[in-house]
Amino acid sequence: MDHTHDKYYIPHGSHWPVVGSCALFMMLGGFAVYLNGAAIGGTVSLIGLALLVVMLAGWFGTVIAESMSDCYNSQVDKSFRMGMMWFIFSEVMFFAAFFGALFYARQLVIPWLGGEGTKFMTNLMLWPGFEALWPSNGPAHAGGEFETMAAAGLPAINTAILLSSSVTITIAHHALKNGNRLLLNLGVLVTVILGFSFIFLQATEYMHAYSELNLKLSTGIYGSTFFVLTGFHGLHVTIGAIFLTVIWFRVLRGHFTPQKHFAFEAAAWYWHFVDVVWLCLYFFVYWL
């Protein structure tokens, strides 16, 4: 434990959490109303989303200002680090649920529907003629004939992009620690550009899947797992890229010192996290 501080630091009260609650109330409540078929819900949901963005900007803005005026001692810094670490752990568990669904469906459900072992009668009576093959859209061929996304094309380029972005952010980190601001600036900028390129290519890939491969969200269990896994990953890449963009603007303003740069590291950790998730995706979803 680090006890170089002589007095504890407690932040003053803040209205941002309550604003955040109101934002989520509108965003999710509105979306629920929209899903129930009332168009007004969509508008409310978007207003809620806008409010959420205002809240995040306001809350992080406050924290950045406090950090820049040297309010935070080393203990606060450590609390932030641990908080980010365990937040990423919870994100890992979120993805684990969807990977679990993929493995369970592929290794157990499809063979069972195909009549493996004691499930022979299930196949014979309920789904006669269904063969257990992967990829599958189930015995009812939900969504019709489809093709899978080839691992060698766009996904391979995307893998290269994300892997190199992990390298560039690490270069930037070393530059920051060595006091090389120019390289830091460039490193973060290249990472941001690579991040948004990934998102662009992923969107292209989705359009390709929908228009040419007949691979859709409704394409049975394959389409469900494919789009939900890659979709949530894409959402996280987007968040990470926005996070890094903010970091880049802070670099421009001269924030971060070789000793103190928690936000930078948090963004880098988050970026490595989406990178690792992508590697798992590439391996289990695209390749195997």
Partner: peptide
């Protein structure tokens, strides 16, 4: 996943689509 099955056409929990 429940939400997606209900509103966005996924088949996580529907055997006909290969889910369970």
């Amino acid at each position: 996943m429940l939400l997606f099955d209900q509103y966005f056409g996924t088949h996580f929990f529907n055997a006909a689509g290969g889910g369970d």
